[in-house]
Design a protein around this nucleic acid. Structure first.
Lengths: 237, 237
DNA sequence: CGAGCCATTGAATGCCATCAATTTTAGTGG
DNA sequence: CCACTAAAATTGATGGCATTCAATGGCTCG
């Protein structure tokens, strides 16, 4: 198999990994231009996660920040009595690991094989002094995460099962478009169980709502995890 | 009535308003020390809101940021079909008005008489250059808001009506303690209707859950809006 | 004191959860 | 490539919690 993927080249890391990184277009590191990106790159370390492996756990002390370069991650909270709630899915370009306090208030688990850029927290924060535009960008990204969380609050507080599922598909489509991927049809990297948990429903209800959306032709399925949205483009974007 | 409240003194604004501000202890402006605070103060303008008046509306262009100095604000989202969801309550010391895009994704309405410090967005952002610690603090505050939103997602996704209400009281108590106020009993500045909406429930369910909490002595009520929590201190803080 | 609003309580309905059974998919080894 | 197995998804039947609809009670303010 012939590949130009830098992951297969052991010494590529010293050879402008970031310069050729397509995720940089949307990630925080995109605010650094080509002549300075190598300085940031020297702070970064690759971290590979297989499916179900964690980047960190709720309660861990925050020592690193992460950029997702490839794959998908779910973040979730556990209560003392063992209840679990997925509070978000993260994709390439997303920044992960900030907290308002010393330790994480949620866990981060890969839902498929995933590659992260790992930055030492203090190291990156010291970098803010020379390149304040990084902090500006991260502030903007955190505000975006907040906005997504607020949308989710609306969804959980005011939407029916069917609406939640459809909105979830529309959000996924929007996310794909943001990454420059095909936004319809979309591939879902997460299980029914994860979707159900995220939407505050059960897998049975997801299955039923899915059948409903299929039967009235709102969506069409190819395989188990690929969904074609039969909806006006304005709603998709 | 004799009062030393600076709001009653017309020329106090030019006389170290911020220096004596008790909210500063928890607000972003607390990172600026006494000899520099007057520079920030010159950027600030008071804005008074009566109950039900708005600081801004969903869709408005973002031109100002706000610090809440006194009172309480609810922030809420409206969907196209008219459904409303309160996504948070804000209190003295809270920073308000940032957005990841040009315009607001939610509205902000005073639920009691409220005083805001209004900062021009661009003016304050230019201030970041001289005082980067302000941006650090604001980033921390936004991360805190995100964390609260994630807690709310858990609450809406996994908690029963009774649990939601009790958790709401505990959160209010925690908020009071953060402000240095009495954390038990607590006074609720918002209506049953607002509580119900925020918790993804109806007023009838709030009323029923409230009666339940009263009858098993988990809480005790003084008047309609003051609540005494009969719960171990560890859970309150 | 009466009007109007808000909160409370009761009864019936409905949506989603739960429990259970079946079907489909995915992963493994022959 | 197919058979086999385990896991995941779907479908059906039933039940429970919160909603909805309706009526009463209580507080505030003119």
């Amino acid at each position: 198999m012939i590949t130009s993927n830098y992951n297969t080249l052991p010494n590529f890391k010293k050879c402008n990994k970031c310069v050729n990184c397509n995720v940089r277009l949307i990630a925080f590191c995109g605010v650094i231009d080509h002549q300075d990106i190598n300085k940031l790159e020297s702070l970064s370390k690759d971290k590979n996660l297989k499916r179900q492996e964690h980047a960190f756990f709720q309660g861990d002390k925050v020592v690193n920040y992460y950029n997702i370069r490839k794959g998908s991650v779910k973040i979730y909270k556990l209560s003392k009595d063992g209840r679990k709630q997925i509070i978000g899915f993260l994709f390439p370009g997303d920044f992960m690991g900030m907290s308002h306090e010393e330790s994480f208030s949620y866990s981060a688990e890969a839902i498929e094989d995933t590659v992260l850029c790992q930055f030492n927290k203090v190291g990156l924060e010291n970098f803010f002094i020379k390149f304040p535009e990084i902090e500006d960008k991260i502030l903007n990204l955190v505000n975006y995460e907040l906005s997504l969380a607020q949308d989710q609050i609306f969804l959980l507080g005011k939407c029916s099962a069917r609406e939640r599922l459809l909105q979830f598909f529309l959000n996924m489509s929007k996310q794909r478009k943001k990454m420059g991927w095909v936004s319809n049809p979309i591939h879902l990297p997460m299980s029914r169980s994860d979707i159900a948990n995220f939407l505050g429903l059960t897998i049975e209800t997801i299955s039923r709502s899915l059948s409903e959306l299929k039967s009235d032709n709102t969506i069409k399925m190819v395989g188990t995890n690929d969904i074609l949205l039969n909806i006006h483009e304005d709603l998709i974007s």
